[in-house]
Amino acid sequence: MKNFLEHTGIEPGRLHFSWISSAESTKFVDVVTKITDEVKMLDPANKKYVKTEPKVD
């Protein structure tokens, strides 16, 4: 459900969910690698949507 909320503004690639048991260290490593790769594909600065703008005045 959370995912769909993000669809109304933020790119889907910025939120991930997963389900890993405490015995699945290999799956953990897999998922971390996959998510990191995916996030690296996103445009770093420009697309950083939700972020406080420093107030200048």
Partner: peptide
């Protein structure tokens, strides 16, 4: 809670990952 995710993004995280 959804507010953790939004607070994280707002404070500059590139992505958020929730895992159970």
């Amino acid at each position: 809670s959804p507010k953790f995710i939004l607070a994280g993004l707002r404070q500059g995280a590139d992505a958020v990952w929730v895992s159970g």
